[in-house]
């Protein structure tokens, strides 16, 4: 579903993505790599926030290079941010509703979808709470709700499990599994290898804007080059974790 060919992104003198070619397909796919590897930058390209200097990006077979971010939303591709981006002075519900505003959804249907989404992300009880007063997990869920409410084909999440408590992490995993079962494709960036190993069909590993490895999750995570890139980060404990 994601086909990237010779993609290059440069910011002034920095080249966070350098002639990257990559194909990923699966219900849930993962993107991992050390800090500064270019993961968020790639997600910014996929969501239309950063224009690549060269290369092409296809989603579901379509070259989306010409689509602006808002058009990608309408076309079924949405994203959340590494630091949740929630308007302080809108309620949780309004923060989600905003994504529907641009899509010309009839009023009644919009209300139904909004209510369903709030229920689904567990915010029904906090729907009228202002963004400024939401805790970390609810901020994440508000962002995911903003993605879901548009009924997307693909949602892209940037480190959604960062900073979550164990119980919250479990709720996140349940939510993502449920979405995936219902047919939504998910791209997830995370440093939590157990999470990636447990959820993803396919994984790509980036380092310094280059592809280290990609393919089926088990194969990729067993690759010595990948383990080297992650230097000890999950060397000892991943086997037990996945066995458990």
């Amino acid at each position: 579903m994601i086909d990237i060919d010779a993609l290059t992104v440069t910011f002034g003198g920095v080249t966070p993505i350098d002639r990257l070619s990559l194909t990923l397909d699966g219900q849930i796919v993962g993107l991992i790599g050390p800090n500064g590897a270019g993961k968020t930058t790639l997600l910014n390209v996929l969501s239309g926030l950063v224009r690549p200097s060269a290369g092409t990006v296809r989603l579901f077979g379509k070259d989306i290079g010409a689509l602006a971010a808002g058009q990608r939303l309408g076309w079924g591709v949405t994203r959340a941010f590494q630091t949740p981006q929630v308007a302080d002075d809108l309620t949780a519900s309004e923060n989600i509703q905003v994504a529907l505003d641009s899509l010309q959804v009839p009023r009644a249907e919009a209300a139904t979808r909004l209510a369903e989404t709030l229920e689904r992300v567990g915010l029904a009880g906090h729907a009228r709470r202002l963004g400024a007063h939401l805790d970390g997990f609810d901020l994440r869920m508000t962002e995911i709700g903003r993605c879901l409410v548009t009924g997307p084909k693909l949602i892209m999440l940037d480190e959604p499990a960062a900073g979550l408590a164990a119980a919250e992490r479990t709720r996140l995993i349940d939510l993502l599994r449920g979405l995936s079962r219902a047919g939504t494709r998910i791209l997830i960036i995370d440093h939590d290898i157990d999470l990636i190993a447990g959820l993803c069909d396919q994984v790509a590993v980036l380092d310094f804007g280059h592809l280290v490895a990609s393919g089926d999750t088990d194969t990729v995570l067993a690759d010595p080059k990948v383990r080297a890139a992650y230097l000890g980060e999950f060397e000892d404990d991943d086997a037990e974790a996945r066995a458990a």
Partner: peptide
Amino acid sequence: RAWAMIRAGDAVAHAAGV
């Protein structure tokens, strides 16, 4: 709501279709 999203950040406003 669009104004509030712009205040939250240009990137998120774009991503939310504003």
